[in-house]
Amino acid sequence: MKENSISQLKEKAPNLVGVIVKWRAITHQGLMRSQNEDAHWVAHSVEVKTETESTSRYLFAVADGLGGHRGGAIASRMALKSVKDEFHTWHGGEADRLVGRALQQANQNVFSKAQLDPELFHKMQTTLTVVALDQDSLTIGHVGDCRLYRVRDGRIGLLTRDHTMANDLLTLHLISTEQASQHPGRHQLTRSVGGEPFMNADIIRERPLPGDIYLLCSDGLWSELTEEEILVTIHENDISSACEKMVRFALRGGAPDNITAIMFRIEAIGPQAAPRFSWKRILGRQ
């Protein structure tokens, strides 16, 4: 290829605007379950807007199914299909509407399926937490007891609220934090996808910063680890190694439930996030 041709292609190459992320996802059946009723999905899309600009966006989702040997696995995968269908129609912006529609459609689909054969799909439900990253915003859609943690400036915070009996009692100040951690209703859901014909979902918005690390996980992971243990593990420089190490720690704790973890770090945000286009790099001539 001639040098002037390379220069022309370089000029036409669109600059990436949005967010750059490093991520790792792991799921494990656990040590006591006969199948994995967890499901997860990660999607990244780059859409060319003009000859000089393209946008980058991500979506992360975890669902933890319940309701019998077959029902839980079907519910979690049906919920994620609803998320995928909505994501494929998304062209950026209004992320709260995207995740809201995805959760409501998932609820309708799972509930309708359970009504077709109540004996086979008795109490078929799932939790579902969706995280949409677009430009410089992060939007969370949440139902159930999967969790999204954020580590920023060396501190860990929980961004979602468990929809469980124990946590509802804690919110009403009827029990203490210590009592909630041992309460028999710790994993008894008060909200789920597919449990009722109409569902109330939490929609949470926040502004991510470069260097932020997020952990999206099912209760099979967080119930085996303290926040301090999660924080120590997340401080690993390599996201992939940190995610693997966290799952290993949960397995050592006995892992009576399925385990799913998605960890991602915000590398950069905005138009300055795009690496400079280089045909030398593409052609292996760094």
Rank of each mutant, 00 (worst) to 15 (best):
W222C: 00
G253C: 11
V232Q: 13
I239D: 04
E228H: 11
V232H: 06
R248F: 08
L221D: 03
S223Q: 14
H235S: 14
E224Q: 15
S240E: 15
R248K: 12
I259Q: 01
R252T: 07
I262F: 04
L221A: 06
R252K: 11
G254E: 09
N237G: 13
G253K: 15
N237D: 12
S223T: 15
V247W: 00
D257C: 10
A255I: 10
N258A: 05
C243T: 15
N258T: 07
H235C: 09
D238W: 01
T260F: 02
I234K: 04
V232A: 12
A242C: 05
V247R: 04
H235P: 01
F249K: 08
M263H: 02
K245Y: 04
L251F: 12
T233W: 03
L225F: 06
T260R: 00
N237P: 03
G254Y: 08
T260D: 09
I239L: 11
I234G: 00
E244Q: 13
E244F: 08
E229H: 05
S241L: 13
I234D: 01
F249N: 05
L231K: 07
T260E: 06
S241F: 12
C243F: 15
W222P: 00
S223C: 12
I234W: 10
A250I: 04
G253V: 05
G254H: 08
I239E: 08
W222S: 00
R248C: 04
I259R: 01
A261E: 02
K245L: 13
D257Y: 02
V232L: 10
N258Y: 09
K245A: 10
N237I: 08
N237E: 13
E244S: 09
S223L: 12
T233C: 10
T233S: 14
L251V: 10
E224S: 13
